[in-house]
């Protein structure tokens, strides 16, 4: 008559896109404990508006801006890159694998490649001048800064003079790599030092698991 009912927290809280932390840890710079801690964060984000255990764009924006209606070109691009399956939500595995690129121990070339895909707005394999201008305009709009159109053109033109070494009016991935190696600060935002301390920031999952185990 015995009913073996598991009460471990890891079983209770599994979301639709849950993946084995051991596998995720083997594919990313995270340890199993860090993946567990990321799950704690994931649960919080994925239930902030729609309680379905999946991160929707509004929830992602809410976490970034404290405002679910904030429209932001870059947040949209990040969301789309995290949403590898392109099904409109970020699942747990996608969340961990994508954040892995932002880990301090992740390969530099992965960070450079991710940033390139981020800025290649129309996914043509090149960053074009119009895209760069569009991104500058989005940044200015977001910051409430004003620059004249001439100034914007001048900034974009100068950047292309420096980065587009093949002078074909677009920046390819090799040119991007070379440009980043000359300006390493460009991918500073591709590293989140916080990820090294993720188990300190979200210790409750691990503590609870240990107690129940």
């Amino acid at each position: 008559m015995g009913c073996v009912c598991s009460t471990s927290s890891s079983e209770k809280v599994k979301t639709p896109g849950y993946e084995d932390p051991t596998i995720l840890a083997s594919e990313t710079p995270f340890t199993v404990s860090e993946v567990d801690a990321l799950y704690e964060l994931y649960l919080k984000l994925s239930n902030s508006i729609i309680e379905d255990g999946l991160i929707h764009k509004e929830e992602f924006q809410l976490a970034l801006f404290r405002n679910k209606n904030e429209k932001n070109l870059f947040a949209d691009r990040i969301f789309d890159l995290f949403d590898v399956k392109r099904n409109g939500v970020i699942e747990f595995g996608e969340f961990v694998r994508s954040l892995g690129v932002f880990h301090p121990n992740a390969a530099l070339e992965d960070k450079i490649a991710f940033a390139f895909r981020l800025y290649d707005l129309r996914q043509t394999g090149y960053i074009e001048k119009q895209e760069l201008k569009e991104m500058v305009l989005a940044l200015l709009h977001e910051s409430d800064l004003y620059l004249s159109d001439e100034m914007i053109e001048s900034i974009v033109d100068k950047t292309f003079e420096d980065a587009d070494t093949k002078e074909d009016g677009r920046i390819d991935e090799d040119e991007w790599k070379a440009f980043v190696s000359q300006h390493p600060s460009l991918i500073k935002n591709m590293t989140l030092p916080y990820l090294k301390d993720i188990t300190l920031a979200f210790p409750s999952f691990i503590a609870r698991t240990e107690v129940e185990d």
Binding site: L45, F102, Y119, V136, M151, L192
Partner: peptide, 26 residues
Amino acid sequence: VAPVTMNAFELISKSQGLNLSSLFEK
């Protein structure tokens, strides 16, 4: 003074939308 000497990517990289550290704020 307008940052005319700043390269465009440097400017863009300052976007709040690219600042994922906000995800970890409680």
